[in-house]
């Protein structure tokens, strides 16, 4: 990324709009330390989730009753749980599971939301009204209850959590995509393209889709922590992933039971969970300020 030296003209105009969305976004992100911290946290956590478990001699299911409830030490950095499983490895594995839940569920949201919102906005008129009415109605009933119901019906397990969270929380994405496409439809350059006889498909490909990417990425980033949070909630009420696998939510709710005698069993998974939450929220807010010019006013917070 190279920027031309500041000229007289630049001095008068405090902000030069770079050419592409990515340049512009990155330019704004660089001036936002919180967002950069968020990005760093997310990258580090992802790396740890991917390669972390290979760095330890233990696996997430290894039990050793002689070492049960050991405090943190050189052998077990985060101590062990009541079955003598190494907590460090379990937290790293938890990262894998929690992050994958956040990502997969959010990608399903994107998939459904983009298609639904896109169809509503492109069809317009009556179809749009009906489709958005359905979204409004679904909005007014608490989806978490239905996630719980789905998890009760389909036995708890990783795949079912992906699906349940994925099909429950696409409403926001649909609204964002619809709003974006509707406002794009009004833009002069889209009208110009249309009056030049550009085909609908070309307009979609050249104008609509690239301009929707920003808001979609922002909504995606902000929905990942939400999914991780919801999974933690489900784990707490006994509907999370099944043993011996463990997400951060499962680890933390196990930790609560032994909180008084072995507080570290709660502290480490809880810390991992909260730090990651913060990372995603900072990153998401930063991305929104950077990629979504419509939100500039809210960006003042």
């Amino acid at each position: 990324m190279d920027f031309t030296p500041i000229t007289e003209a630049d001095r008068r105009e405090p902000y030069v709009a770079p050419q592409t969305l990515r340049d512009r976004g990155w330019h704004r992100m660089k001036g936002n330390p919180l967002a950069l911290w968020g990005m760093a946290i997310v990258i580090v956590m992802t790396l740890l989730a991917v390669i972390g478990p290979f760095l330890s001699p233990y696996t997430y299911a290894d039990q050793s009753f002689s070492d049960a409830n050991a405090w943190p030490s050189a052998a077990h950095w985060f101590g062990t749980d009541s079955l003598g499983r190494d907590l460090f490895v379990r937290v790293l594995y938890g990262a894998r599971i929690s992050l994958s839940i956040g990502l997969v569920a959010s990608l399903i949201n994107v998939f459904i939301g983009v298609i639904y919102g896109g169809i509503a906005a492109l069809a317009g008129g009556r179809i749009d009204r009906i489709m958005m009415h359905v979204v409004d109605i679904l909005y007014s009933i608490p989806m978490l209850l239905y996630v719980i119901l789905l998890m009760v019906v389909f036995k708890p397990g990783l795949l079912n959590i992906y699906l349940a969270l994925g099909i429950a929380y696409w409403l926001n994405m649909a609204r964002v995509v619809r709003g974006q496409i509707l406002s794009l439809k009004q833009q002069e350059y889209v009208m110009a393209a249309r009056s030049c006889g550009t085909s609908t498909w070309q307009i979609l490909r050249r104008h609509m889709i690239p301009n929707c990417v920003g808001p979609i990425i922002v909504t995606l980033t902000l929905s990942i922590p939400e999914a991780i949070f919801t999974e933690a909630f489900l784990s707490f009420i006994g509907l999370g992933v099944s043993a011996p696998m463990a997400s951060w939510g499962v680890l933390a709710s196990e930790g609560i039971n032994s909180m008084r005698s072995f507080p570290f069993q709660l502290a480490f998974p809880a810390l991992a969970l909260c730090i990651t939450m913060l990372g995603f929220m900072f990153l998401g807010d930063g991305l929104r300020d950077a990629l979504d010019p419509q939100h500039q006013k809210e960006g003042s917070r």
């Binding site: 909630f233 707490f236 939510g249 933390a252 709660l266 809880a270 969970l273 909260c274 913060l278």
Partner: peptide, 9 residues
């Protein structure tokens, strides 16, 4: 911090 800590924790 308030929104990043799950309520059960």
């Amino acid at each position: 911090l308030g929104v990043s800590v799950p309520s059960f924790i």
